[in-house]
Computed example of a mutant assay.
Amino acid sequence: MTGDPAQIRAGVSVQGGARRDVHRALPEELPVAVTVNGSTHAVMMATPADLEDFALGFALTEGLVGAASEVERSELVAFDEGIEARLWLPEAQAEVIAARRRSMAGPVGCGLCGIESLEQAVRALPVLPDSGLRIPGAEVAGATDALRDHQPLHDRTHAVHAAGFLRPGEGIVMAREDVGRHNALDKLIGACARAGIDMGQGAVVLTSRVSVEMVQKTVLAGAPVLIAVSAPTAHALRLAEGAGLTLAAFARCGGFDIYAHGHRIVTEESDVA
């Protein structure tokens, strides 16, 4: 229903002064409106694939619902202008959401468009419990490499982000892609919720930097470990520290940095904090 997430387009490649015609797969992006009981809550530019996962993940990380079971039904409706991802909740719950509804219409990767106050930008996060989860350092070091095997759209276009869920001893058990890194994470969270995967038993793995919103979404999804190929921002690190989130960054080339709550990562060194 949502079509091919990539389109083949013609271009001219110039290499070493020589020109040749090429055809490249380019990632598609369309306006996707998330609606709740017929009212638009947000409009984001997204890759038109796995949009049921996106809508549910967005609803979970934005606090529209506390669990997938609260969604009575969902549907995707395509229009010439874009796609509506429609969620239907109990009427009383939808009325509460409508009272605080905010509309977001922004570019890809903008995770804070449309907020109405500074307090909304840095919302309070719950503190993650220490459930005893431990991940071998070797799995953390290889996490982003393992995710590469779950990025078919990236292989076609070389222009999208991915988010994956790593379960210790099993590797990447779920992954989603999108032109927007926030969207990819929302899709992953929604996919895990729909599949009944407990995100408290593993780690989120990202192909992007770690910004405030990525920490927020990870914590609200209940995942205690976040592994990223690139750096965290200083503010994202402060949030991770306060929420009890284990944060590992620069996970590539067989190594990684630990920035917060390193006790969940088991390495040969005994003094990792």
Rank of each mutant, 00 (worst) to 15 (best):
residue 73 R to S: 13
residue 266 V to T: 15
residue 23 H to P: 03
residue 103 S to T: 09
residue 18 A to N: 14
residue 50 D to W: 08
residue 181 R to Y: 11
residue 131 S to Q: 13
residue 256 F to S: 03
residue 255 G to V: 10
residue 258 I to F: 06
residue 190 G to E: 01
residue 251 A to C: 10
residue 148 R to T: 15
residue 142 G to T: 11
residue 230 S to G: 13
residue 111 G to S: 04
residue 94 A to I: 04
residue 181 R to T: 15
residue 166 L to M: 13
residue 116 E to D: 02
residue 15 Q to G: 07
residue 68 A to Q: 09
residue 155 D to H: 14
residue 167 R to Q: 14
residue 74 S to P: 07
residue 167 R to A: 13
residue 269 E to G: 15
residue 173 V to L: 05
residue 105 A to Q: 11
residue 54 F to E: 02
residue 152 P to M: 01
residue 265 I to F: 13
residue 131 S to H: 12
residue 139 E to S: 12
residue 253 C to P: 06
residue 51 L to R: 02
residue 219 V to L: 00
residue 49 A to F: 03
residue 230 S to Q: 11
residue 269 E to T: 14
residue 23 H to W: 06
residue 96 V to P: 04
residue 191 A to F: 03
residue 243 A to C: 01
residue 260 A to D: 01
residue 143 A to D: 08
residue 62 E to S: 15
residue 163 A to R: 11
residue 108 V to M: 06
residue 141 A to Y: 10
residue 63 G to R: 09
residue 271 D to W: 11
residue 257 D to V: 12
residue 208 S to D: 02
residue 3 G to D: 02
residue 113 C to S: 13
residue 24 R to Q: 06
residue 260 A to M: 01
residue 72 E to R: 15
residue 55 A to F: 07
residue 47 T to K: 03
residue 121 A to N: 08
residue 118 L to R: 10
residue 245 L to V: 02
residue 88 W to Q: 15
residue 114 G to W: 02
residue 43 V to D: 02
residue 241 E to D: 00
residue 84 E to T: 14
residue 121 A to E: 06
residue 174 M to I: 11
residue 251 A to D: 00
residue 88 W to I: 14
residue 202 G to L: 00
residue 189 I to R: 03
residue 180 G to Q: 04
residue 50 D to I: 01
residue 141 A to M: 11
residue 34 V to L: 02
residue 179 V to A: 12
residue 124 A to Q: 13
residue 214 M to S: 09
residue 235 H to D: 15
residue 183 N to H: 12
residue 194 R to T: 10
residue 75 E to I: 08
residue 79 F to M: 14
residue 22 V to Q: 01
residue 1 M to R: 13
residue 226 L to E: 04
residue 207 T to S: 11
residue 147 L to D: 10
residue 129 P to T: 10
residue 212 V to I: 05
residue 260 A to E: 00
residue 142 G to Y: 06
residue 252 R to A: 04
residue 217 K to S: 10
residue 31 P to F: 03
residue 251 A to G: 00
residue 100 R to A: 01
residue 76 L to M: 03
residue 131 S to K: 13
residue 109 G to I: 04
residue 126 P to E: 00
residue 116 E to R: 12
residue 119 E to I: 10
residue 44 M to I: 12
residue 48 P to R: 07
